[in-house]
Design a protein around this nucleic acid. Structure first.
Length: 707
DNA sequence: GGCCCTCGAGTTCG
DNA sequence: CTCGAGGGCC
């Protein structure tokens, strides 16, 4: 039988994948220094599995698909596992699909295979989070912990008994009396996220080496030669399986979930997230429930594990190759991915701040495609030594904004050069300068710089400033590029015809003339709406107007303080430095910025033009003392309020004299927490600060006549 | 001069 | 949300 070119190609790709995977296995298991994220490793392994499934002849005994892990190291004495430590099959989602049965097709298949083979419907599963740590096996004889070992290659691991003994949550003697003479408990050693961060913070202070991530922290800690060094690492452990090695047919309970409960009784920590679930729908519901809380869990997880609950059922299902057919690991979308930097641009903000931005090959991270990653500032780039062409690990963790975790220096292509902040503004060509000792570089072009002009207008129109609905970045971009506005005051000079004409010119320039226009129709409704909303913005408040001007370091809060203190605009514009410094929270720097702003004739002209265009606000007597039921109190709002908007609550509290702040400290008087409250509520509890729910706030407002 | 507490500014994707 | 830096207090 002659081999076809197809098979030859598959054979060479399989060999290539095996070589690559073997290298990564060594890095991961032996050196504890992976050079690619797990998601990428999984993708390579799946590709190899797929090739082998299609061409069974190509399967070799040394293929990574046929083994559980990599070879152990010789550092610690080898331990042969009487019951092999298996790996689980992984299931991934097809995120393109919206129907659950299609999206989670691999899970649906898994459940269906069990239902068919056992002839039952909606089998019961024991379900648990899959911690991102290190699998270990603990042996107990006569209720005493006698030996602990790493997984190694699944058959032979390393003796790490001394190090495991240092982990406080691992029982050295079992509680109760009804335990078997010999048992082996399997579980995951992991490093809680908070402990990981605290460890790194301390390591940074003392100049020690920091840990790359909690998983590496756990793995590295168990490999310490000196158990004393391990003891200093904040490790934890959860048990998830139990065996009776002297009689493998016997079990300590008929169901896995009951076995876990027994383990708990004997003193083993079992994850509180462990639960049971019925059939496909139950599994998916659990997957979603844990997924929604993934970031809030105190440890990293990369998925959830489903195990057929009944042991007799597990026995019937048996194994395929080395993985059980009665269990599966359902992975969440990766929160880390490798990609390549294709370019580094520099963004210019409203204040001229130059922010480097990495353009990367688009990759899916935690469910969205990331193509831009901020690099914050030049210091950050220098710290990371990120270069154009570099492969980098991108993460989208707790918050939404992607960041570069680190550069994969091992994969750096030849000929890359260190990145340097350009000397000129990429938009207007003015010099980029950095004030001694400051982190940010700034464009010195001021409002002559197109980027700063755009940002100034965007800020002026924003919701918390003049609140011009419909005037967004796209429109402002065209407005400035086509020279329709030079200053924020020009926005009020444009009529419907100007807007329509501007849009026509922009479309012409871009070659994107809409069909309707080609047919001779001109859309004007949007321009009418826009002009109406610009008109509406003319009636504003002193504090909004002050904020809208975009004076450096005068944000919402400072603008409000100035408005209260002076009561009128001219008093502020003409106030000498010393008087400004009297205002609470205004010091020499901010006072200087304000004086500087109003000393600039151009700014005076713009303000005059705005007033001439009909921008008005109410003025009042200076208010220099705080009055009301909540005078002197600092309140923090967190979570979602259901009866009123956050802004509404803020207004009402401020009307009572309270200061509404964004961060909890020991100065905080009380915290109003709605559903979904996170770190702020946690901090309040920690500091022993009074916490109100929304109902209590409403009752209080009613009582003092603000409801 | 050295803390702690706030505020300001910049940020990604759909 | 997070970082950096300004303000205020010891």
């Amino acid at each position: 039988m002659s081999r076809t070119p197809d098979i030859d190609r598959a054979a060479s790709r399989a060999a290539e994948l095996r070589a690559v995977l073997a290298e990564h296995n060594y890095n991961y298991h032996v050196l504890d220094a992976p050079t690619i994220p797990d998601a990428e490793y999984d993708a390579l392994l799946r590709e190899l599995s797929a090739i082998e499934a299609e061409h069974p002849d190509l399967v070799t005994s040394d293929s990574p698909t046929q083994r559980v892990g990599a070879a152990g190291t010789t550092d610690f004495s080898p331990v042969r596992h009487e019951v092999p430590m298996l790996s689980l099959n992984n299931a991934f989602d097809d995120v393109e699909k919206t129907d659950d049965r299609e999206r989670f097709a691999e899970i649906a298949d898994f459940v269906r295979r069990i239902e068919t083979k056992l002839g039952i419907e909606n089998p019961e599963f024991s379900v648990e989070p899959k911690l991102d740590g290190l699998a270990i096996s603990l042996r107990y004889e006569g209720g005493i912990f006698v030996r602990g070992a790493t997984r190694g290659d699944g058959v032979t691991g390393e003796d790490v008994t001394a190090n495991l003994r240092t982990i406080k949550v691992i029982p050295l003697t079992l509680r109760g009396k009804d335990w078997p003479a010999v048992l082996e408990v399997r579980g995951e050693v992991y490093m809680p996220r908070a402990a990981f961060e605290a460890y790194n913070e301390k390591a940074r202070e003392t100049g020690e080496k920091t840990l790359a991530n909690p998983r590496n922290g756990a793995a590295g800690s168990l490999r310490q030669r000196d158990p004393g060094a391990t003891a200093k690492r904040p490790l934890a452990f959860y048990a998830y399986a139990v065996y009776l090695p002297d009689d493998l047919d016997a079990t300590i309970a008929p169901r896995h979930s009951e076995a876990l409960a027994r383990l708990r009784d004997w003193g083993f920590p079992v994850s509180p997230e462990v639960d049971t679930a019925q059939g496909f729908d139950g599994l998916v519901a659990y997957y979603r429930r844990i997924g929604a809380r993934r970031d809030a869990l105190p440890y990293d997880i990369d998925g959830v594990v489903y195990k057929l609950d009944r042991y007799d059922g597990q026995k019937v299902m048996g194994f395929v190759s080395r993985a059980p057919r009665w269990a599966v690991a359902h992975k969440y979308p990766a929160q880390e991915q490798t990609t390549q930097i294709v370019g580094i641009d520099v963004n210019i903000g409203r204040t001229g701040a130059a922010t480097p931005l990495a353009r990367v090959q688009p990759v899916q991270v935690a469910g969205v495609v990331v193509s831009n990653v901020t690099l914050h500032n030049a210091d950050q780039i220098a710290r990371l030594d990120a270069r154009v062409g570099d492969y980098v690990i991108v993460r989208r963790a707790g918050d939404v904004i992607p960041e570069i975790v680190r550069v994969v220096v091992e994969r750096r292509p030849e000929g890359t050069v260190e990145w340097r902040m350009p000397t000129e503004c990429p938009v207007c060509g003015s010099a980029l300068v950095r004030v001694e000792g400051m982190a940010v570089w700034r464009c010195s072009g001021g409002l002559a710089c197109g980027a700063q002009r755009k940002e100034a207008i965007f800020h002026f129109a924003s919701r918390r400033a003049m609140d011009i609905e419909g005037l967004g970045d796209r429109l402002i971009e065209d407005l400035v590029d086509l020279d329709y506005v030079k200053t924020i005051a020009d926005v009020y000079k444009l009529d419907v015809d100007d807007w329509v004409e501007m849009k026509r010119r922009a479309d012409e320039r871009d070659g994107t003339v809409p069909e309707t226009v080609k047919q001779g129709k001109v859309a004007t409704k949007w321009a009418e709406n826009l002009v109406a909303s610009i008109d509406k913005s003319r009636a504003t408040t002193l504090e909004r107007f002050l904020y809208a001007l975009g004076i450096r370091d005068v944000g919402e809060s400072t603008a409000k303080a100035l408005a209260r203190w002076f009561g009128g605009f001219d008093a502020i514009a003409n106030a000498p430095l010393e008087e400004l410094k009297q205002v609470p929270d205004v010091g020499p720097v901010v006072a200087g910025r304000i004086v500087e702003f109003f000393a600039e004739p151009h700014n005076r002209d713009v303000i005059d033009a705005l007033r001439a265009a009909g921008v008005v606000w109410a003025e009042h007597e200076p208010q220099r003392t705080v009055q009301g039921h909540l005078a002197g109190k600092t309140v923090v709002l967190t979570g979602t309020l259901e009866q009123m908007s956050r802004d509404e609550a803020k207004d009402k509290l401020e009307a009572l004299g309270a200061k509404v702040s964004g961060s909890v400290s020991k100065k905080t008087s009380f915290v109003v927490a709605g559903p979904g409250a996170g770190s702020k509520l946690e901090k309040a509890t920690e500091l022993g600060i009074e916490v109100w729910d929304e109902a209590k706030l409403i009752a209080y407002l009613d009582e003092v006549g603000q409801g």
